[in-house]
Design a protein around this nucleic acid. Sequence first.
DNA 1: CCCTCGTTTGGAATTGTTCTAAATTGGCTT
DNA 2: AAGCCAATTTAGAACAATTCCAAACGAGGG
Lengths: 153, 153
Amino acid sequence: MNSAAPDVLAQRLADSGLRSTPQRELVYAVLLAKRDHPTADQVFTRVKEELPGISLATVYNCLETLVSCGLVKQVNLERESTRYCPNLHPHAHFHDEITGATHDIDLPPTIFSKLRAVLPPGYDAEGVEITFRGSAKLPAPSTSRESRTATAH
Amino acid sequence: MNSAAPDVLAQRLADSGLRSTPQRELVYAVLLAKRDHPTADQVFTRVKEELPGISLATVYNCLETLVSCGLVKQVNLERESTRYCPNLHPHAHFHDEITGATHDIDLPPTIFSKLRAVLPPGYDAEGVEITFRGSAKLPAPSTSRESRTATAH
DNA sequence: CCCTCGTTTGGAATTGTTCTAAATTGGCTT
DNA sequence: AAGCCAATTTAGAACAATTCCAAACGAGGG
Ligand SMILES: [Mn+2]
Ligand SMILES: [Mn+2]
Ligand SMILES: [Zn+2]
Ligand SMILES: [Zn+2]
């Protein structure tokens, strides 16, 4: 499915003194396979297809592990389930209020310096998040096996 | 405390065919008085000082009413309690990861056009949210009766 | 092999929010 | 002034997402 991904994961885990497990690998693979910012529960459903015995608690554990390794980011656009995003490039999110879908939007690198410029002195920002809300009329997600919501790496 | 505020509220409520009540007025007054993006529970605590009999459900109801009137916005920077912001000016949020405080940051109006420029065709954004995360070393909030976190209108 | 410790697991507990059904309130009509 | 009606408030139950817990598991290392 995805080639270098497991290696990257194994490496990051090792760096943190953690083990590579089938559960962790699969959760990560599922996130990479369909980048639609799934909830923990959606990840659970997808992962169960390949590993029917996995528990929801483990999915939460694995997601937390991936976040702490820096391979995945949590996305909270509204109060409801946290969503998970494996896209490490600087990007914004577009939340389609009609469909509920969340799309990645590539950001030109210059946007960050422009944004930091609005910060008054005394404020030191480590990160910036940009979220658009609205509706997207996209060229029809095409019923091909994997609808690509996100940035191609 | 605040002069024109109740009138604005009464007006907006009337526009929506809703009644002005002591609970709604007080919840709104509390939001305007200390613009630190309180949670529903914090609003509850503050409101109880003046209206000890109020219930948490009512605070939730009033906040929802204010949001639907367009006088208050919900802020969800992370998964945890929703916070409430009565600042209607276009502004960003700075979330201090150390103190947990959330500050309003005034935005130059031009930022919106710049941001819309990054949106690919097909995306139609009605709103944009910008959130900074980091730490702020501010000139000491001064122990005066009302620490002003936000924009002075 | 067997110990140890990191990991997984199911279920209970917690947290924030919404729902529900009954009591209260306030404006209108008579 | 009394009665009526619908909006509002209220307490507590219900809910959904997540975290906690204590037991079971499993991969190495001695
Ligand atoms: Mn939405
Ligand atoms: Mn925080
Ligand atoms: Zn993303
Ligand atoms: Zn604000």
